[in-house]
């Protein structure tokens, strides 16, 4: 099982490496949005920085996730189905998407702090939240993107279906980043982290359970 998962992830990385322009496109999207933010806000406050960071992150991740399943041509779809167990496939997808999103979040943070300000004082807390957030968002959006690619107008559908699901995660993340940037003095950060982890586990578990029934066609 682990062997299969690693194999699929390798395959994905290779595919993305071959289509460099698509990753570069997402990164460029992130940079362009950050630049717009820098131009619109002459002087950005810490609270708005947090809000904008997570909003940009949602859009960047939706943008990159739409590739995740849309890039699968029909032929490869069947190839995957005959080759691997759906549970392995979805686990591999979640792991790959998590690291993909974490990478994008780091890129976004790098450019946000370069162009505007860097309000984060507690870096380990922030990156921990970033990782758990990427995990949760990755699991949810990769599940929803399968649904969205089957419908018409999949790009809009992905946003409509996933944004309401992401709101609890994003609210928790906002709270944690506010604490990490020192504007919120909260002692219940550990409970927030537990909640975030619980939501992550919930969405991973659900996608593992529901993925096989979606995969069969």
């Amino acid at each position: 099982m682990l062997h299969n998962i690693i194999h699929i992830i390798k395959h994905e990385v290779l595919l993305d490496y071959r289509q460099k322009f698509s990753i570069a496109g997402t990164v460029l999207f992130a940079i362009a949005s950050v630049f717009v933010v820098e131009k619109v806000f002459q002087e950005i406050k810490v609270f708005s920085w947090n809000a904008i960071f997570w909003i940009l992150f949602i859009f960047v991740s939706l943008n990159s996730m739409v590739r995740s399943y849309a890039k699968m041509t029909n032929k490869r779809y069947h190839y995957y189905y005959t080759l691997y167990d759906p549970t392995d496939l979805s686990l591999a997808k979640i792991v790959y998407n998590t690291f993909n999103l974490f990478f994008l979040a780091c890129v976004l943070y790098f450019f946000m702090s370069w162009f505007t300000i860097d309000p984060i004082t507690n870096k380990p807390l922030f990156f921990g939240a970033l990782f758990l957030g990427s995990l949760g968002i990755g699991a949810m959006v990769s599940f929803v993107s399968i649904l969205a690619t089957k419908g018409e107008n999949s790009h809009t559908l992905l946003a409509i279906l996933s944004i309401p699901l992401l709101i609890p995660t994003v609210l928790l993340l906002l709270k944690i980043t506010a604490a990490a940037s020192g504007i919120l003095n909260d002692s219940s950060i550990t409970t927030d982290f537990t909640f975030l982890a619980a939501i992550d586990l919930l969405s991973i578990g659900l996608s593992l359970i529901l993925f096989p029934s979606l995969w069969r066609n």
């Binding site: 929803v144 699901l165 709101i167 609210l171 409970t191 909640f195 919930l202 659900l206 979606l214």
Partner: peptide, 24 residues
């Protein structure tokens, strides 16, 4: 098939939404 899957996913995602976070 797809809407059934989304329904299940949405319902479970709603549990932290309605019951847990307002209580925090």
């Amino acid at each position: 098939r797809l809407s059934a899957a989304y329904n299940i996913f949405a319902f479970v995602a709603m549990i932290p939404l309605i019951f847990v976070i307002p209580r925090m």
